[in-house]
């Protein structure tokens, strides 16, 4: 019973750390997908008397990905209806060229203003519309969500570390005497801490498997969720196979650090 309790006392904080790590990985993927969606949906609309090309605009700012010409005829027919063909031709002649400019990444509001300024400085440029207000709102919301999640992750991580430190103290009490006796008889560090290593590695594997179960379950429950459609992703965002190896790696690192710390602290001090 005591042994099961000992295992649980280490598995739980380890599991919390692993959940935190998976949240970070998922959040990284979700924000990337959402950012990509925001970026691909967004375009600066400009009108210019001169023809604009992608290489030209990229030479002005490397954050510009491409420029796409808009159909003038369609614009004219949307603006003015029931007019004769001759009039349409006249209007088309007078109208500047319209373009959609796509950006290479989801830039900050400050950067967007810079780009706007650069575009306005192009000779022959008539109008530049960045839809700055709407962009700013979305960008701010995105930043707030990112910050809140980062705070949550940090708190989760700190609490887990505190729990692990607490468990290390319990280990210290439980294993110190044995380690010291073994040291008196000449046991090297790895042998003294062998029992603890074995136990902690088993716990690390159990914690990683539990975490796997949790996220596979969440993935199956959230399949076809509207959230994924909104961010142009699917439930696979919840678990990638490489995540499992990341969890194992992190758990093993925590185990090695914790056990060695306990072993060094249990090591007798040679009096001088």
């Amino acid at each position: 019973m005591k042994s099961i309790k000992d295992h649980i006392m280490f598995i739980l904080p380890l599991l919390a750390v692993l959940i935190g790590i998976e949240f970070i990985l998922i959040f990284g993927r979700v924000t990337k997908a959402y950012e990509e969606k925001l970026r691909s949906d967004y375009a600066i609309i400009v009108s210019s008397k001169k023809v604009l090309t992608t290489p030209y605009l990229r030479s002005i700012d490397s954050d510009i990905e491409s420029v796409e010409a808009m159909n003038k005829q369609k614009i004219a027919s949307e603006v003015v209806s029931n007019i004769g063909k001759e009039n349409v031709d006249t209007i088309l002649k007078e109208l500047p060229h319209f373009y959609r400019i796509h950006l290479a990444k989801y830039v900050t509001v400050k950067k967007l203003k810079e780009i706007e300024k650069e575009l306005k400085a192009i000779p022959g440029m008539v109008t530049v519309d960045t839809f700055g207000e709407s962009y700013e709102t979305k960008r701010s919301l995105f930043s707030v969500v990112t910050t809140l999640l980062n705070i949550f992750m940090t708190i989760l991580f700190l609490v887990s570390i505190l729990l692990i430190i607490k468990q290390m103290e319990v280990w210290q009490l439980a294993h110190k005497e044995r380690m010291q006796i073994m040291e008196i008889f000449g046991a090297p560090l790895m042998l003294r801490s062998g029992v603890l290593f074995k136990m902690a590695f088993v716990d690390a594997i159990i914690a990683a498997l539990l975490n796997l179960g949790i996220f596979l379950y969440v993935q199956s429950k959230l399949n076809n969720s509207l959230l994924f459609k909104y961010i142009h992703a699917d439930a696979s965002i919840f678990f990638h196979v490489k995540d499992f190896f990341i969890w194992l790696g992190v758990s093993f690192i925590i185990v090695i650090i914790s056990v060695l710390f306990v072993a060094f602290r249990a090591s007798e001090a040679i009096e001088e």
């Binding site: 005497e177 006796i181 073994m182 040291e183 008196i184 008889f185 000449g186 046991a187 090297p188």
Partner: peptide
């Protein structure tokens, strides 16, 4: 020191057994 201790037998008044 560890090497030396492996070749010494030590007996303590309080036994120092691993319980």
């Amino acid at each position: 020191l560890l090497q030396l201790r492996r070749n010494i037998g030590i007996v303590f008044q309080d036994y120092k057994l691993i319980n």
